[in-house]
């Protein structure tokens, strides 16, 4: 597709304006002096300092972070295993059900997933809290992780693994020395995706949680229902800022890696002459 026209440029510009203006306004109004969200009272960072005093929000943030780290690690391991099963192990009894189980959580309405997990925990008679939220998040994130890793495995030349075995590496060694390093970027993005999904989730966590494990989205939600407050704007701005920095950092490091590769190649070329 070529021939970039004014129509194309305008649609992109309007589309991105629609995507970004609400976020931008939210960020700007987090620096508003006035408590009334719509009235501009001058620049101020007072809502950020009042955040630091809000212990409920801070402890919720800490819970969320811990849940996200543990559940995304679990989800990445399970998701990578699932992707390998789907791509590398051809037919086995129950494969159709398995691929359905990987696929369904991707589109399942959160209220259903959340409710069913809660009822499971009740039936199993476990105390709900930190670990039940971790399990809930790991369960739906692992499917996203599996999809990400699966996509990489599909365009992975299987003969590379065969070559490793042919040269004497048993399956587990082949996986650790050859497969894993090659799919590493997709495993990392699977982790990042699981991490943000966990950070973001309100509905499933609300069902799966118990006393003492209130996550940040739950806290934000309960305050948002009472109306817009600059404090929530400030929390949101911090979260947006962290994610943006993360994404920029990730793209910067990959760019630097490819630049380094280019330099290496030039150096080798120079040496070869």
């Amino acid at each position: 597709m070529r021939r970039f026209s004014w129509f194309n440029a305008t649609s992109i510009a309007l589309g991105f304006a629609f995507l970004y203006i609400p976020i931008l306004l939210l960020v700007i109004y987090s620096f508003n002096e006035s408590k009334l969200v719509t009235v501009w009272g001058g620049w101020s960072t007072k809502w950020y300092s009042s955040l630091l005093q809000n212990e409920g929000l801070l402890s919720a943030a800490w819970v969320t972070l811990r849940v996200a780290v543990v559940s995304s690690t679990l989800a990445t391991i399970l998701g990578t295993l699932a992707a390998i099963v789907l791509v590398r192990i051809g037919r086995f009894p129950g494969r159709t059900l398995f691929s359905g189980l990987i696929f369904a959580p991707l589109v399942m309405p959160e209220v259903i997933t959340g409710l069913s997990l809660l009822l499971l925990f009740v039936a199993m008679n476990v105390d709900r809290g930190f670990w039940t939220v971790v399990i809930a998040h790991a369960t739906f994130s692992m499917c996203f992780a599996a999809v990400v890793v699966q996509a990489r495995l599909y365009d992975f030349d299987k003969s590379v693994e065969e070559a490793a075995m042919d040269l004497g590496a048993p399956p587990v060694k082949t996986f650790l020395q050859v497969t894993l390093p090659i799919i590493a970027p997709s495993v990392i993005s699977a982790w990042l995706l699981s991490f943000t999904l966990s950070l973001d989730d309100l509905v499933i966590a609300s069902f799966a949680t118990g006393p003492g494990a209130t996550t940040l989205p739950m806290k934000i939600y309960s305050q948002v229902r009472l109306g817009v407050t600059p404090e929530i704007n400030a929390v949101s701005t911090i979260m947006i800022g962290l994610v943006t920095i993360g994404v920029i950092f990730a793209s910067y490091t990959t760019k630097r890696a490819s630049a380094r590769q280019e330099r290496e190649m030039k150096a080798v070329d120079a040496g070869a002459k």
Partner: peptide, 8 residues
Amino acid sequence: TSFLIRVY
């Protein structure tokens, strides 16, 4: 970035 925040 958070779904909840974007709706908010």
